[in-house]
């Protein structure tokens, strides 16, 4: 079975186009569920009106589907609980210019 970490790793290569920080570091990946070859990924956008939402969603779907061992991919938006800044990792905060 494909490991959750493998999925998370591939998602670190998808960057938010505005901030240049991976969607994992931004805390946008709220849920990963692997059942055999079936992978479900829940994403929370930093703002519901993010115009790049669909593009990011599609990118995640493509990246996960390309992994060996993945048979079906379901990527969905999850608004509850909403994204909050607490989800930013320390690395993201540093990249946003707050901590050195």
């Amino acid at each position: 079975m494909i490991a959750e970490d493998t999925i998370r790793n591939v998602l670190t290569e998808i960057l938010d186009p505005e901030y240049g920080i991976s969607i994992v570091e931004l805390g946008m990946v709220s849920h990963i569920d692997v059942q055999g070859g079936e992978v479900r990924v829940g994403l929370t956008l930093t703002t519901p009106s993010c115009p790049a939402g669909n593009v990011i969603l599609e990118g995640v779907r493509t990246a996960v589907a390309a992994l060996p061992g993945v048979e079906t991919t379901d990527v969905y938006l999850q608004w509850d609980p909403p994204w909050t800044p607490d989800r930013l990792t320390a690395a993201a905060r540093r990249l946003l210019g707050w901590e050195t």
Partner: peptide, 19 residues
């Protein structure tokens, strides 16, 4: 960025919109 690079996200590295 969305028009040029949106369709290839997840397939290949793309520059950032902010760049």
């Amino acid at each position: 960025w969305m028009r040029r690079y949106g369709p290839v996200i997840g397939k290949e590295p793309v520059p950032l919109a902010s760049k």
